[in-house]
């Protein structure tokens, strides 16, 4: 195994040709990768179960309650209001389930892929974010790792920072994700997400306006 900086925070002013390459101690072997893929598949199944199970049943209750409410005579406005209240509570429960599903594995990432999911997230970030991501689908593990690596990083940005570019493109057997305009110290969180798949992370540039590049092997 090649020696590396073993996860130390990268020095800020390293020249581009000797950019630090972050890897974890004891780099992931083939077995770890399989476990990592299995982990992402589990997350995906869990998220889908939330949708296909509890959520579908709860949403089906809502129109049925509406039918019941419609049978209640006008003379009983109390019951009418209680049913409306019940329906509001069901909506709240569904919203909470959706939030949980989003944290486990975003449904939009599952259904539509990395580009739409990252664009949706970019809407919530307090600095301008440009997203340039290929439409190609890469499987639950690679898409999941790339999504959580990028969003973990974007989520740590503070208002008033420089505009950020997120570019993800396939280069041979790797997905190369480049974040420009971000503090290189956030590379540690990026590495946490991608190292299980055998991914590597490099950084360069200014402490507040640098570049993080992650390379994730794809099948």
């Amino acid at each position: 195994m090649p020696a590396s900086t073993e996860g130390d925070p990268p020095a800020a002013d390293v020249p581009a040709d000797t950019t630090p390459c972050l890897r974890t101690p004891g780099t992931a072997g083939a077995g770890d990768c399989r476990a990592e893929h299995e982990q992402w598949q589990r997350r995906l199944r869990l998220q889908r179960r939330l949708h296909d199970g509890a959520s579908l049943r709860i949403s089906a209750l809502v129109p049925q309650l509406g039918v019941v409410r419609n049978r209640v005579p006008e003379a009983r406005p109390d019951l009418d209001a209680s049913i409306e209240e019940l329906q509001d509570q069901l909506h709240t429960v569904l919203q909470e389930l959706r939030e949980i599903a989003r944290v486990i594995y975003p449904p939009l990432l599952d259904l539509a892929g990395l580009a739409p999911a990252l664009k949706e997230f970019a809407d919530r970030v307090p600095v301008p974010v440009r997203v340039e991501v290929a439409e190609e689908r890469l499987g639950a593990a690679v898409e999941g790792a790339a999504y959580f690596a990028v969003t973990g990083c974007l989520g740590d940005l503070r208002p008033g920072g420089p505009p950020v570019d997120v570019v993800a493109r396939r280069a041979g057997a790797e997905l190369v994700v480049t974040l420009t305009g971000v503090p290189p110290r956030l590379a540690v969180g990026v590495l946490d997400q991608v190292h299980g798949l055998g991914g590597q992370v490099r950084t360069s540039g200014d402490p507040e306006d640098g570049t993080i590049e992650a390379r994730i092997p794809c099948a």
């Binding site: 579908l56 089906a60 209750l61 129109p63 049925q64 509406g66 039918v67 419609n70």
Partner: peptide
């Protein structure tokens, strides 16, 4: 989804 479809059908008719 059969459950939701049936529920919505009833509500539409109601």
């Amino acid at each position: 989804g059969a459950l939701f479809r049936e529920g919505l059908l009833m509500l539409l008719r109601a």
